[in-house]
Design a protein around this nucleic acid. Structure first.
Length: 464
RNA sequence: UCCUCAAUAGCUCAGUUGGCAGAGCAUGCGGCUGUUAACCGCAGGGUCGUUGGUUCGAGCCCAACUUGAGGAGCCA
């Protein structure tokens, strides 16, 4: 039996109108009267449901079907009827229903609104709800759009390692990876751990960033990107942080900070446009039920040029408005969340690049500017989410990089392979990191990172 | 890690000044010939997060703990 997908019915309606079709899916709602009834079927291929009409005298097992619970899996055949005057454009007048899998009366998803907190406890069932079906289809489409953007421009996709024995990169607390029996070590009472006995012969961790590794491939392929999981063991409990998240890190050779920002802006506009064209129904749903200004805001992002401001200019601007802030603003300290949001939401009302931060609050590998005080770094701030992208031009001068490492308390001998890149054919290069979940949040309007990760891992929570 | 708030039926919530534990939805049964979170009737469903305290009496007041949420820091 050839199955028709509900997506096809909506996308190529003329082709299926008045024809006999067979569909399979799960019951979202069921309404039964004495001699007829309706089933809303979702087959997973499309955001919207197909209404199936059941008539007692046309369906052999009507009584059995009428007792089905929400969540049951069925296969139904019949004629696709056009219903231009009804709420739905068409419906399936069913003549045959096969029950594939029953559900029970304690099915936890009701035909009503649930809180996101409750649905987080049902991570295995929540993709069956409207909101999460929309979120995770958009997540998939966005991931594809990112690959499409970079591949169309000749970027090489590099798989940087998940496990790393590199010393700290200053990007955050790391999860240790070990095959040592820690219970045995604890019981033995020994004072220190002999990592030479560990799997890799030294201490190893899960990666906090693929950047240093991908820079090596940048120096071979010129334009490269990573897109993979990243792990941070920070004890941070916010709507924007997870212990396991996905990051996109492009790196471009023979390029400076301006090229980097141009790339970031083009990429963001590209993936948002792609999503709005390819997830129409989902985006409309978000605009209606999650964030009323979403489509307008995203259209504004696509059509306007991003703003630019240097860190120093931003500090001057914020100092004039200091009454509005809880925290004071001083040159040399990092911008607070309230400052970032004020800049992007109130001052500019669109995405803004803040550039040239003081070197002391940024990473060692960032390009030292001619003033000797700032580095060629950029953060892209967006309304609603805050920092979406962080990037920089990299320090390409061997001696400067070594002294920057020493200033940051790192031993250059631990980074021999990284320094080699400055020894053999160094050139200006730049890159950025984009938190994929923050992008999904920005595009969907969802307010909590736990609701854009299929199975979120946060402090104290690794269920499912 | 810090600050604030919350926890009552399967879900979403109400519960007055400390005095009999409530509603809607869901569930079960019955009704209904075009429903759209269908509708109408009836029924079942509770250790009020946990532990302790104050009180004649605690869902309500107090303390600690647990869990969750929001904000801050850290960051992507």
């Amino acid at each position: 039996m050839t199955k028709t997908l509900v997506r096809q019915l909506f996308r190529e309606t003329e082709k299926y109108a008045h024809k006999n079709i067979t569909v399979s899916g799960w019951i979202r709602t069921i309404r039964i009267s004495k001699s007829f009834g309706f089933i809303e079927l979702n087959d997973g291929s499309f955001f919207k449901n197909l209404q199936i009409v059941l008539e007692k005298d046309k369906i052999e097992n009507f009584n059995e079907v009428s007792k089905l619970n929400v969540g049951a899996a069925i296969t139904a055949s019949g004629v696709l009827d056009m219903t231009p005057d009804a709420k739905q454009p068409f419906e399936l007048k069913s003549g045959f229903v096969e029950i594939n899998g029953l559900s029970t009366s304690d099915y936890p998803l009701q035909k009503k609104r649930h809180t996101f907190e409750y649905l987080r406890t049902l991570a295995h069932l929540r993709p069956r709800t409207n909101t999460f079906s929309a979120v995770f289809r958009v997540r998939s489409i966005l991931a594809y759009a990112i690959h499409k953007f970079f591949q169309e421009r000749g970027f090489v996709y590099v798989h940087t390692p998940i496990i790393t024995a590199s010393d700290c990169e200053g990007a955050g607390e790391m999860f240790q990876v070990t095959t040592l029996d820690i219970e045995k070590i604890a019981q033995s009472g020994q004072q220190s751990v002999d990592y030479s006995k560990d799997f890799f012969g030294k201490a190893a961790n899960l990666t906090v960033s693929g950047q240093l590794n991908v820079e090596t491939y940048c120096m071979a392929f010129r334009n490269v990107y990573t897109f993979g999981p990243t792990f941070r063991a920070e004890n941070s409990n916010t709507t924007r942080h997870a212990a396991e998240f996905w990051m996109i890190e492009p790196e471009i050779a023979f390029a400076d900070l301006k090229d980097d920002m141009r790339l970031a802006e083009e990429m963001l506009k590209y993936v948002i446009s792609y999503c709005m064209e390819n997830a129409l129904e989902e985006m409309e749903f978000f605009n209606q039920f999650v964030d009323k200004d979403l489509l307008e805001r995203l259209a504004n992002v696509i059509n306007s040029d991003f703003a630019h401001i240097t860190y120093t200019e931003a500090i001057e601007l914020l100092q004039k408005e200091k009454d509005k802030f809880e925290y004071s603003v001083e040159w040399g300290s990092d911008l607070q969340t309230e400052h970032e949001r004020y800049l992007t939401e109130k001052v500019f009302g669109r995405p803004v690049f803040v550039t040239d931060y003081p070197k002391d609050i940024k990473a060692f590998y960032m390009k030292l500017n001619d003033d000797g005080k700032t580095v060629a770094a950029m953060d892209l701030l967006v309304p609603g989410v805050g920092e979406l992208i962080g990037g920089s031009q990299r320090e390409e001068l061997y001696d400067v990089l070594v002294s920057r490492m020493e200033e940051n308390g790192l031993s250059p001998e631990d980074y021999g392979w990284y320094l080699d890149l400055r020894k053999y054919g160094t050139n200006k290069h730049a890159g950025f990191g984009l938190g994929f979940e923050r992008l999904v949040m920005y595009v969907t309007g969802m307010g909590n990172i736990r609701d854009v990760l299929p199975f979120p891992r946060t402090v104290g929570n690794a269920d499912f």
